[in-house]
Simulated assay, not measured.
Amino acid sequence: MSMMGQYLRLTPAEFERALHDPDWAARYAHEPHDRQDATADTRVHETDKAWHALDFLLKRRGFPVDVVFGEADMPWPEGEDWGYGPPRLLTADRVRAAADALDAHTPDTLTDGVTPADLAAANIYPQIIWERGEEPDWVAAHWSDLAKYLREASRQGDAILLWIS
């Protein structure tokens, strides 16, 4: 089974509800029919297996917001698990900070100076592709898509739930 980076945008009202009702948040995240608005499909995003390389490369470049794992724990009961641990959160303010930093961290520079051997040596998931020598260009494509997603979330004033499934 592959590990995938998952994202769900939450409006301010949805954010408040998620904080107090983890069962609702889990249903909302995992059952698309629970999202009633016309833009439900634009509210979710995934980075496929690129999540770990994104984390490595963004930290290497000094990106100021943790857009892979989130920056805050949800105030839910211990043991909440959505695949590989509990979901985490980026508040609307932190989403805005991420969107503001995007121009200084463009996809075309994300992988500059990084080789597959560097990613393999750092034990970046999925390690097998780096050991085969595949170039990390596909990670930059995922960063481009995530950047669009972050910009739209910021424009809408949304928070984001993040998890690895």
Score class of each variant (00 low, 15 high):
W130T: 03
D145Y: 07
E71W: 11
V95A: 06
D48T: 06
R132S: 11
R96W: 05
W51D: 02
W51A: 10
V114Y: 01
Q127H: 09
A29V: 06
R60D: 01
N123K: 14
V67G: 02
R60M: 01
R35S: 05
D145T: 04
P75E: 11
W51Y: 12
E71M: 15
A97I: 04
R132K: 15
P64K: 02
M74E: 10
D112F: 08
W130H: 09
D93Q: 13
K59T: 04
A92R: 02
H142R: 14
G79K: 11
D145P: 03
D137C: 01
V44P: 03
P107M: 04
H52F: 09
P22C: 09
R27F: 10
P32A: 06
D73Y: 14
H52T: 07
L102V: 02
W138I: 10
T42P: 00
V44D: 08
P116N: 07
E31I: 15
T106K: 07
V44Q: 13
G83K: 11
N123H: 14
T115C: 07
E46I: 01
R96I: 00
H33I: 12
A97T: 05
H105L: 02
R43D: 09
H33V: 12
P116S: 06
D55G: 08
A25E: 05
H105V: 04
E134V: 11
D137H: 08
H105Y: 00
A104L: 07
Y84S: 14
E46F: 09
R60F: 03
P107S: 02
W51H: 08
Y84I: 10
D34M: 14
D100E: 11
Q36K: 13
A104H: 06
P75Q: 13
I128H: 14
P116D: 07
A141P: 00
G85Q: 09
G62H: 01
Y28A: 03
D118L: 12
A147M: 00
A141G: 10
A122L: 10
L19C: 12
A18C: 11
P126N: 05
